Amino acid sequence: DLSALRVEEVQNVINAMQKILECPICLELIKEPVSTKCDHIFCKFCMLKLLNQKKGPSQCPLCKNDITKRSLQESTRFSQLVEELLKIICAFQLDTGLEYANSYNFAKKENNSPEHLKDEVSIIQSMGYRNRAKRLLQSEPENPSLQETSLSVQLSNLGTVRTLRTKQRIQPQRTSVYIELGSDSSEDTVNKATYCSVGDQELLQITPQGTRDEISLDSAKKAACEFSETDVTNTEHHQPSNNDLNTTEKRAAERHPEKYQGSSVSNLHVEPCGTNTHASSLQHENSSLLLTKDRMNVEKAEF
């Protein structure tokens, strides 16, 4: 173990290094160091905050020279020094078990990766560091076993998940096959086929009936047209017969005018059967003409 005197000496050296690497504005270890034209180094955030307070150039807090945003430059070497100082402080805390008085939040800088452990060898070769390295080497064999167990647990979990997924996939297939086998029997399929065939026959029977009705309507229309044509021909046949009657009536009127007047009046009210309204109107006109002729003949006879 380190003596108290040596611990104090190391602590004083760390404090001196820390004062050199402090920012003059925030009085902390410089984060993202930036250098000016006057070779003074500050935190990048502190300098941008200072420049944004005034429009135009501002003055350096140490030498009062003008500073602009374009004049600022990043210093990589200074950032490396800060990183190495942080590593020294971490090693000091691990070796002594004491917390550094002016320690900052170094938890963000710590890294437990194997590459980081290899890099620590180049920091300080001390008894405390050696003991700590031995402890780490002793704890390393235990870690692979834990990793193997965790991997086995994960693989077993994956296997159970896969088996569950396969079961879920197989179950719908089985149910679907069961439904297909038990849903419709052979008799049901035959009945469905016969039902479809009967429906098709009914459709075939319905369509000819409609065509037959249309044919019957067409035949009825044709018969009505033929009947009207026969009526017209009958009226045409009746007209010459009426003319013959008129000639006979004229002759009778010349011989017996008194008797014919009474008979002509009675004939006005008689309509021949089986004739249309057109034929009756023609008869009325003929009878009126005959009456006028008879009157003329009677007057001539009187004179």
Rank of each mutant, 00 (worst) to 15 (best):
E28Q: 09
I67P: 06
T68H: 01
D244I: 02
D95E: 12
K54F: 04
S150W: 00
Y104F: 10
S281N: 04
L164E: 12
R169N: 09
R165A: 09
I14H: 15
L50P: 08
E299G: 13
G159K: 13
S266G: 12
T233W: 00
S126R: 08
L72N: 00
I89S: 08
L203F: 03
K55Y: 10
H40Q: 11
N65T: 12
V34W: 07
D244W: 13
I41V: 09
R132N: 10
T207I: 01
E249T: 03
E254N: 06
H278N: 10
I206A: 11
L290G: 09
L29M: 11
E74T: 00
N276S: 02
Q73I: 12
S228C: 03
L136I: 10
N157S: 09
L137S: 06
S58E: 14
D188H: 01
K37Y: 08
L245P: 02
L51A: 06
T68R: 06
F92M: 02
D244C: 04
Q171S: 07
E180H: 05
F42V: 02
K192A: 11
N267Q: 01
L86A: 06
S79Q: 15
L50Y: 10
S122K: 09
E120Y: 04
E8F: 00
L27R: 07
S122Y: 07
E9T: 06
L29D: 11
S71G: 12
L21A: 05
D95V: 15
E140R: 07
A16Y: 02
E299V: 03
E8C: 02
C23I: 15
K37D: 01
E271M: 08
P141R: 07
A279S: 12
S139T: 08
V298M: 15
A223Q: 08
E299D: 08
F92E: 13
D200H: 04
E142S: 09
L2G: 06
K134P: 09
H269R: 08
L117Y: 06
L85R: 13
F92R: 15
Q261C: 13
K31S: 13
R135N: 08
R70S: 12
Q147I: 02
F78H: 10
I14V: 08
E249K: 07
Q59I: 08
Q283H: 12
S35E: 01
P144A: 06
G159I: 10
E229Q: 01
K49F: 09
L155R: 12
T194P: 03
K37C: 03
K300C: 12
D218N: 08
L81N: 13
R130C: 06
K55D: 11
K55P: 02
D1I: 12
C23F: 13
A223R: 02
K118D: 09
L48T: 11
A220Y: 00
A193K: 14
Q53R: 08
Q125N: 06
A133G: 08
